[in-house]
């Protein structure tokens, strides 16, 4: 999976261009996240605003992406669409991740 990546004020924003992180995409997503977060800023924001659907495989892959970044680094989420927000709320994963309405809001708040 190809992920788009930009840097703002020491925060790396990773955008998922695909519309689903499901069983068919979970492994490719996790591998792409490993590559894009292998070095660089300790603070990463994953912009999910293009992603309309995440199943439990995708949820597990997002958790794995956070864990593989290593201790002392941070993965926030931004731009959760309604069905994705529902999965995070039900599984209480919304209490584990810092979730921003928008990725650029995460940068402004943390850098400002």
């Amino acid at each position: 999976m190809e992920l788009h990546e930009t840097c703002h004020d020491g925060i790396r924003i990773v955008t998922v261009p695909e519309t689903r992180i499901d069983a068919a995409a979970a492994v490719r997503f996790k591998d792409a996240m490993r590559a894009v977060t292998a070095d660089g800023p300790d603070h990463v924001v994953l912009d999910l605003s293009n992603v309309g659907f995440v199943d439990s495989s995708g949820l597990g892959a997002i958790v794995a992406a956070m864990k593989q970044m290593g201790a002392g680094r941070r993965l926030d989420l931004a731009g959760l669409t309604p069905d994705v927000a529902k999965v995070f709320r039900l599984t209480r994963m919304d209490t584990v991740f810092v979730i921003h309405d928008r990725a650029d809001g995460a940068v402004r708040r943390d850098a400002g």
Binding site: V63, K67, L90, T91
Partner: peptide
């Protein structure tokens, strides 16, 4: 059942949510 989220971080489960979501909804 909802898997135990533990203390977060390394302890977080990466699976076991499927039947929880089915039952919940």
């Amino acid at each position: 059942c909802l898997p135990d989220l533990g203390t977060g971080g390394e302890a977080l489960p990466e699976g076991g949510f499927g039947w929880f979501l089915i039952r919940s909804l």
